[in-house]
Amino acid sequence: MTVHPEFGTAGAVAASALAAYLVLVDPWIGRRMYASLERSRAAEPEAKPETETETETNAGSSEPSALTRYFTVVTVLWWLLAAAAVGALLVAENVSAADVGLTAPESPWYAGLLCVLLVGMAVATGRSLRRLAAEGRNVPGLSTIAAMLPRTPAERRLATVAAVTDGLCAEFVYRGVLIAFGVGVLGLNLYAAAALSLAVHALAGLYQGRRGVLAFALFGAVATLFYLVTGSLLVPVVFHVAMTVRDLVFIPVPPRERHTGAPAAL
């Protein structure tokens, strides 16, 4: 895989502003938003089991839950961030779609097989984690994201939208644009730029505390490897979406689950 982006002055300024936001602002906004969500979820009344019909009927007569507001804000923020990244590319001198991973994989059959395997892995591990939760046993990492786990069908739908948005936008920004920024603006080679983007991505896990930073670093390393091997964002996006949907939607949690993770947004 090779990329040859040429940002020029305007593109470099815009991309630098985006990178500065991701390093200096986004992790702290995420931490504050998640801490606020934890407090709001803990204060909400015990949720009663709802059917799909009951949820639809009550949707217009009650205030949106804290999680509904949280996922709505996170989804909007992600699309705004992706739009800012697109803006930086539009004012750049010569950055092609391939330079930011928006191209077909170098080996379509290999990438397609990877996607199938990754989705299958997400489903299989999701079932195992769901069984652990149903049996009341410890689910690794559950406490650090417990406030984000949906309790109603409406929240599950919104969680799915947020998970898909996270996968699409995060891979485009962190893997596609930031690696191109490292090469085209900072003058790094491809692998050093990938390592830098991975470090920035790891900071996004600050809302889960130190364990979250490590988890994001590991998750990002796998996604980065897929990107470097295939030359396309397709496999990283499928991996990211599949795993995030698994974690947010498939694992049941008691309505009043207490959170022991550090205060901390997608």
Rank of each mutant, 00 (worst) to 15 (best):
Y110M: 14
A47E: 11
L114M: 15
A15W: 03
A262S: 06
L188P: 04
V161E: 11
A104C: 05
V86W: 10
V238D: 11
E155H: 10
R131C: 06
R130H: 13
A221T: 11
E50H: 07
A12Y: 05
V74H: 05
A195G: 10
Q208H: 04
A170G: 06
L234W: 08
L22A: 02
V249F: 07
A19T: 12
S40F: 11
P45H: 14
E93H: 09
G112T: 10
V161D: 10
R127E: 08
A170F: 06
Y110Q: 14
A192E: 13
Q208D: 01
S232R: 02
F250C: 06
F239Y: 15
V86C: 08
F71R: 10
I145R: 03
G136C: 11
F219K: 02
P64T: 11
E46H: 14
H240E: 07
E135P: 08
V213W: 00
N58T: 13
A10H: 05
P64C: 14
T103H: 05
A66L: 10
V245F: 03
V253S: 15
G205M: 00
R246E: 05
V123T: 09
T144K: 03
G184Q: 02
T160L: 14
Y21W: 13
G184P: 00
G101Q: 00
A194V: 07
A215Q: 10
L114W: 15
A159E: 01
A192T: 15
G101Y: 01
A170Y: 03
L203S: 06
L266F: 15
F239Q: 03
P64E: 13
G182H: 08
E155S: 11
V241P: 04
T9H: 13
F226M: 09
V119Q: 09
A146R: 10
A82G: 14
V119K: 09
A17I: 15
G184F: 02
S96R: 15
P108G: 10
G182T: 07
E56S: 11
G167W: 00
L248F: 11
L77F: 05
R156H: 13
A10T: 03
N94S: 15
R69G: 14
E106K: 14
V253G: 07
G87W: 05
L117C: 15
F7E: 01
E155L: 11
R246Q: 13
A262W: 00
A217T: 03
L248Y: 07
P150Y: 09
V164A: 14
V161P: 12
A122K: 01
G120T: 10
G120W: 12
S197V: 10
M1T: 06
N58D: 12
R246M: 13
V116L: 15
T53M: 07
L118P: 00
W28S: 08
F172E: 02
Y174K: 03
A162D: 01
L196W: 05
I179H: 03
L89R: 00
T9N: 07
T2P: 02
L129S: 04
E6V: 14
G187P: 04
L113F: 13
V222E: 02
A83Q: 12
